[in-house]
Design a protein around this nucleic acid. Structure first.
Lengths: 214, 214
DNA sequence: CCTAAATTTAGAATCAACCTAGTAATATGT
DNA sequence: ACATATTACTAGGTTGATTCTAAATTTAGG
């Protein structure tokens, strides 16, 4: 990931990718996602169109740099939860922490970015896909953690409920950001919403998949 | 909706639309969604390409004829629930009924159709969008039913949980259909899954939005 | 029959996505 | 250091969904 142990070739690839991504983001925020073509991005980054497509197979990928991090976030939180902690408690704790630091991964991406996503059906669809992947990753983690079989539906139901809450709060963060509210204000509201949403899940999931102590 | 009180023009439009949809479905099931072009559909239906696009703005719309029905189904069930019945109970009852009659709207669409969707990222994405619209429609219905304000998140959390379960069961139906299981067999499994999934929601949502008696 | 409105058509333009063959740069083995 | 194999990049073209236009056709309503 870092520049450690990286040859000249890897370094240049990193630079090319970053340059393309940077130019694309700049153009998208300036003119809107749909108004900027792949050719525009290629020209701004001084590379061939094909090079843009090589690094970012879909145009939407130019926007969501944190996609992989986003997809893995819930599954990772669950896997790393402390002994004696339930899945629900670990996710709630992690979410509160992310809210406190205005983490972009939960939606604190700034007004321009939020507007750009909201204005583009293609980006909204891609975001939906990420939510889906994240839920699937969580379901897999839950199945592994609880030793459930492939036909056991409980991990998937739990993942749907938990993923649903996270998606909801993400959308709310975006919505309020677009409405012009500041991050601290949104964070305050989210804290209350977290209590309502996770609190509702407490009776059904509070005792689910508590990691054994020791 | 019916052919009642319909002039010649409306009738022909209906026929044109049905013809296009029918030819498209036939071609898609035969060759796969991605292998058939809009031009192919237009040629088979003996109309101009533009006419296909006029009736079905997106290529995916040629496939999902029951889309609007699908989107409204949960909200309508909730609005029509009996006095004294909770939202959760009404949805559970409606789902069991749909399973019993192998309703296409919950995923009983036949192996060829299921495979077609599964094989096409565009159709999968469109289906995701429908799930999303359905959840939003349900959230609106719940907000109206409970007289919740626009900043009340409870209806949206409930809709996310309920919509999540429905999406899960839909996907499971598709998955098993693709795996070659017959409708009766799938219906039997679903009945058990319904108990597990709705049962898990019982403690959190069992008392939510019970319609007043009288 | 005649005119207005709606529908359908043919044709072109745009652009994302994909493909291919060739060129340039880097890495590797001697 | 040099030759050769890999890998990255480029240039150019193809496909197909989507959008737009103006013209032709069809229907509705006098």
């Amino acid at each position: 990931m870092s520049t450690q142990k990286m040859g000249l070739r890897e370094l240049k690839k990193q630079q090319t990718r970053e340059n393309i991504s940077h130019q694309a983001t700049r153009l998208f925020l300036e003119h809107g996602f749909d108004k900027v073509t792949i050719a525009d991005v290629a020209e701004a980054a001084q590379v061939a169109k094909m090079t843009v497509t090589n690094y970012f197979p879909r145009k939407e990928d130019l926007v969501f740099d944190l996609g992989e991090e986003f997809v893995q976030s819930l599954a990772r939180t669950v896997r790393r939860r402390a002994p004696g902690e339930s899945v629900l408690a670990s996710l709630r704790r992690a979410y509160l922490a992310a809210v406190a630091e205005h983490d972009p991964v939960i939606g604190f991406s700034g007004p321009a970015f939020a507007r750009m996503i909201d204005a583009s059906p293609a980006l909204t669809a891609r975001l939906r896909e990420f939510h889906d992947e994240r839920e699937k990753a969580l379901a897999d983690a839950l199945a592994t953690e609880t030793g459930a079989g492939p036909d056991d539906i409980l991990p998937r139901v739990a993942a749907a409920q938990l993923g649903g809450v996270h998606r909801l709060l993400f959308d709310e963060t975006l919505r309020r950001t677009i409405a012009g509210q500041g991050d601290p204000e949104i964070a305050a509201v989210l804290t209350r919403y977290i209590d309502a949403a996770f609190g509702l899940l407490e009776p059904s999931l509070g005792g689910y998949a508590v990691r054994p102590t020791g």
